[in-house]
């Protein structure tokens, strides 16, 4: 419950934030703090300096530019749920945000925080893989973009390097149909297994959470479904054997075998949901 001593800064601009992150060893960006502060309470992490991004209004913007939906890294999950841009252009993001933890956590927790933590049980990493997102990362050296595939590196590790800041997540606006399904520990609880699926014009992207350090693309299933006007039997056939290709962890909530099975079911359900939405 009680944190170690820690330094703190609250920059007024993104430039200040970058300079603080670059200029202090062991500095870490503090977004909503709904994971980081809890990890610090367990003293499982003890950054030297927290750079509080709370005052950086420009990271809280949501907007549609042409065919792209841009979401600032500091957009809270509650804001995501209320955004008319999200509702119009990619409603799955709001739908999934609404199932993360609880109101209080969603009021503080941010999209950027959720993915930078990259806890394998988090909601957004697999979803953003399915949505083919692009991440914008800023440092004092300038801006770079990283494809979602390259963004997730390991448990609690992403492509955001020391001194860098994730500023924006971009996903294609529109799309055909999206779905996400899984099994949680209690309603709106931690995921035990999940899958996100997205289809556009017969091309599928399917990503699995909870089975590895980073979201896993189910490429074989994607290709089996490619161009097919799917019904449940097709999907089940396409998913057949997926579990055997995975090497998920065993833990107190699920054995590896159970996770394999849940993952297959999650894929079936996410795909059917996405397909239905694509056709509706």
């Amino acid at each position: 419950m009680l944190l170690r001593e820690v330094g703190y800064a609250r920059p007024a601009t993104v430039e200040e934030a970058l300079s603080l992150l670059a200029g202090n060893d062991g500095a870490r960006a503090l977004a909503g703090g709904q994971t980081l502060l809890n990890v610090m309470k367990q003293r499982a992490a003890s950054p030297e300096v927290l750079v509080d991004l709370g005052k950086l209004a420009e990271l809280r913007l949501v907007g549609v530019q042409g065919m792209t939906l841009d979401i600032g890294a500091m957009v809270t999950l509650s804001a995501l749920m209320r955004s008319s841009e999200v509702e119009v252009s990619r409603p799955i993001l709001a739908e999934v945000a609404a199932t993360v933890a609880d109101v209080q956590v969603r009021n503080r927790g941010t999209l950027g925080g959720n993915i930078c933590v990259n806890d394998p049980t988090n909601h957004f990493p697999p979803l953003l893989v399915a949505l083919d997102a692009t991440m914008t990362i800023l440092s004092e050296d300038g801006e770079r973009t990283v494809s979602v595939e390259d963004f997730f590196v390991g448990v609690f590790e992403t492509a955001v390097r020391e001194g860098e800041l994730l500023t924006r997540v971009s996903v294609p606006a529109g799309g055909g149909g999206d779905g996400m399904s899984g099994v949680t520990l209690g309603a709106h609880g931690t995921y035990i297994a999940n899958a996100a699926a997205s289809v556009d014009d017969g091309r599928w992207r399917i990503a699995l959470g909870c089975v590895a350090a980073v979201p896993v693309r189910a490429t074989l299933v994607e290709s089996r479904l490619s161009g097919v006007d799917v019904d449940e039997a097709d999907v089940r056939a396409a998913v057949e054997g997926l579990g055997e290709t995975l090497d998920p962890p065993s833990d107190v909530h699920a054995s590896a075998d159970y996770r394999r099975s849940l993952t297959e079911t999650s894929v079936v359900r996410a795909v059917l949901q996405a397909a239905e939405r694509a056709s509706g």
Binding site: D102, G186, A187, H188, G189, T190, D251, V252, H253
Partner: peptide, 16 residues
Amino acid sequence: LLTPNFYDYHVPHALD
């Protein structure tokens, strides 16, 4: 202990 707090030791919440 693999369920040392409310993170892994899930107790029912309102929606449960």
